[in-house]
């Protein structure tokens, strides 16, 4: 369970670690906690600060959109994998690990086994997820959006 959550974290931004990345977690976590402060002082403007610099709302919004897309793809991916016949833990683990570019997941794709036994369709799907994760979602997804192809 603990390792399952760790699969989501990822390394630092600008490093070669994959996943959601620590800076995004930090930013969103701070934003959520500051929301409590905003409730106590409804008129105060309380920005999120990283390295003492205030983060603009657009950036927070972008990080947020990223985070939610990540979760959405994770959820959708797990559903696809479990439809292909994987058990609960393995489906979760395999998608989380491929999306975060980690490697070993949980269950039958855990650290002491490998992905060889997965169905072919599952392998293709996981390969796509790896690419999505490595290019941080937007680069790949944008190609699928209709407004990208419109002049």
């Amino acid at each position: 369970m603990i390792f399952f959550i760790l699969l989501f974290f990822g390394g630092c931004a600008g490093s070669t670690g994959g996943g959601i990345k620590s800076i995004r977690h930090l930013l969103l976590y701070k934003n959520s906690v500051l929301e409590l402060k905003r409730l106590v002082h409804p008129r105060a403007i309380i920005p999120v600060r990283i390295n003492e610099r205030a983060i603009s709302p657009e950036i927070i919004n972008n990080v947020l959109a990223f985070f939610l897309l990540y979760i959405l793809i994770f959820v959708f991916g797990s559903v696809v994998m479990s439809l292909l016949g994987l058990d609960f833990i393995t489906a979760f683990g395999s998608v989380a690990t491929c999306l975060g570019n980690v490697g070993p997941g949980m269950g039958t794709v855990g650290p002491i086994s490998n992905f060889a036994h997965l169905p072919d369709a599952g392998k293709w799907f996981l390969t796509f997820l790896m690419l999505l994760g490595r290019l941080e979602l937007f680069t790949v997804l944008i190609i699928f959006s209709p407004s990208f192809w419109r002049k």
């Binding site: 959550i5 709302p57 927070i60 947020l64 939610l68």
Partner: peptide, 27 residues
Amino acid sequence: HDVISKISAFVLLYLIIFAAGSALMAV
């Protein structure tokens, strides 16, 4: 903007509590 920020903070806290709670129950 501030409403979206509120909603997102809520969803995030919800997921954090869900994850932390599940970890705790697993322990």
